[in-house]
């Protein structure tokens, strides 16, 4: 959250000297004072140092023309495009379209991934049947999936959602399966001693123990979703954040690409944070369960 919003909120024509005092200030503060106030705000401030440095470097690089303006648009231009696109509502509608694609794909890909991961983690038999095929299919390139998916789903939303879902399934299956497979046998033995039935084993042993891996998989699923969103919107779309970025590159208007990056980064962080909140809540529940 902090990093992304700092990029958005920072005034674009940033004087290049600004981050230096910022750095000195926050280090000073944290080293000199150890008060509660500083702890709380200092933590946020340290996270800002690097983005501010990068922003300064970007501004400096742009103003010194280290890289042609067409390829590294100056922060001011990006800011201007961001404001314009936001003001006209274009950016919001692109975000809405992409988010709905991601949302549906996450629902579908996530459930398939969890189901497959659980099935293969819990049953050696199922794993023996499914895993080899899964491993081959998981490595099919997205470029190849598109024409095949068009044959089955046409070129509407179903195409995009199915293509993104496929990308989401992979990390979720692998993390879920590994999370379950890595549960120490001792834990399962305990469950056997308590004569738990399967639902109980899943709810009381497997899920709590595999939770970190599960969420790791979900988070990586979100990442993969964004990656393939761009690919899918590159090949067959006329709206969405990915499309905006592809379009910007096609027309050598890289400020649009950077605006897309900022939007993707900001939304990604929001999704990440919300997943972490859910995870934290479940972790509490997990402690209660034991």
């Amino acid at each position: 959250m902090t990093a992304a919003s700092s990029i958005e909120k920072a005034p674009p024509p940033l004087p290049t000297s600004l981050p230096a005092p910022g750095l000195r200030l926050s280090t000073l503060r944290i080293t000199a004072l150890a008060g509660d106030f500083v702890k709380r705000f200092g933590l946020a401030a340290t996270g800002l140092i690097l983005p501010l440095l990068l922003l300064a470097l970007w501004q400096h690089a742009a103003s010194q023309h280290w890289i042609a303006e067409q390829l590294l648009p100056p922060p001011a231009l990006v800011w201007q495009s961001l404001v314009e696109l936001w003001g006209s509502g274009d950016l919001r509608s692109h975000i809405a379209v992409s988010l709905s694609r991601i949302g549906w794909s996450f629902l579908i890909g996530g459930s398939v991934g969890l189901a497959l991961g659980f099935a293969m983690g819990l049953s050696r038999q199922l794993k023996a049947y499914l895993f080899p095929t899964f491993e081959v299919v998981a490595q099919f390139p997205v470029v190849g999936w598109i024409p095949l998916l068009i044959i089955f789903f046409g070129i509407g939303e179903a195409l995009k959602i199915s293509a993104i879902s496929i990308a989401i399934v992979v990390p979720i299956v692998i993390n879920t399966y590994k999370g379950i497979a890595n549960i120490p046998n001792a834990l399962l033995d305990v469950a056997r001693v308590y004569r738990f039935d399967l639902p109980q084993v899943i709810a009381r042993v497997v899920v709590p123990a595999a939770l970190p891996s599960l969420f790791n998989g979900l988070r990586q699923g979100v990442m993969q979703a964004w990656l393939s969103l761009v690919f899918v919107e590159l090949l067959a779309a006329s709206e969405g954040i990915g499309y905006l970025m592809v379009w910007g590159r096609q027309l050598l208007q890289l400020d649009l690409v950077v605006v897309g990056m900022i939007a993707v980064g900001a939304i990604g962080v929001l999704l990440d944070v919300s997943l972490r909140l859910v995870e934290a809540r479940l972790q509490r529940w997990r402690k209660v369960a034991f």
Binding site: M1, T2, A3, A4, L43, T46, G47, L48, I49, L50, P51, L54, V222, M223, W226, L227, L229, V230, F231, L234, G242, M245, V246, V257, G260, M261, V264, G265, A266, I267, G268, V269, L271, D272
Partner: peptide, 17 residues
Amino acid sequence: RLAGPTFHTLKHISLFA
């Protein structure tokens, strides 16, 4: 603290970008 937030933001940005 220093690199975490940046890393967790950047990781979402599509490689394509």
